[in-house]
Design a binder for these strands. Sequence first.
DNA 1: CCATATATTCGACAATGTAGGAAAAATAGG
DNA 2: CCTATTTTTCCTACATTGTCGAATATATGG
Lengths: 110, 110
Amino acid sequence: MGKSDSLGEFEQVALLALIRLGSNAYGARIRAEIAERTGRDVSLGAIYTTLERLERKGFVSSARGAPTPERGGRAKRFYKIEAPGERALRKSRETMDRMWEGLVPAPSAG
Amino acid sequence: MGKSDSLGEFEQVALLALIRLGSNAYGARIRAEIAERTGRDVSLGAIYTTLERLERKGFVSSARGAPTPERGGRAKRFYKIEAPGERALRKSRETMDRMWEGLVPAPSAG
DNA sequence: CCATATATTCGACAATGTAGGAAAAATAGG
DNA sequence: CCTATTTTTCCTACATTGTCGAATATATGG
């Protein structure tokens, strides 16, 4: 059994993408956001699988969107981070912050 | 094949513990450092396994220490983070920083 | 209907997380 | 020397995460 509720690296990234995208978080968008921010080019399968697992744990919720008025295509599924997810995310960040504390000369300088 | 060289959450924690402990990083100490900093109580087995994998990838190196002058016990094995490990660690942090960018009201104030 | 454009779901397998107990050294005492 | 005891590492196993690529489901213009 999982010890508690710590998040994996990619889970954190996915959750953060949801926060950034707000009400427009669905597969392709999430993937693009991650690629843009981190340069990491993950597959859609990776994203859906991860989100599915997080949903099962109550960290995110999802809802089917209305049929797209665009060209064609299946209805989107929008994801949203839930309170437990935000808590876990914040906690993960704090853990890393404590481990990094006092180690960096110049923080995020690129 | 592993896509590149991203580190898992615990791998990052372990690597950071090595940096913090400097020349005194071995099993029990590493475990204590992690527990103290993060409140997370992992087993020694978890630590050795993780370090072993990181060593195989060239992220850390290790060397047997001199016989203990204490009561009894096997010789310690000291671990040290290597340049590739530091690079990967820094990169992981930067990735998370970019994902968190602009999201927190008050970051680490410690 | 059909070809095509989007999206999501499935099925698999690799990598990481994590424990617990066996095994290896080291040493004090009888 | 032998053994009980101590400290630390190593091995084995299994759960959870990371990640893909192919399969499947919907829409819609012709």
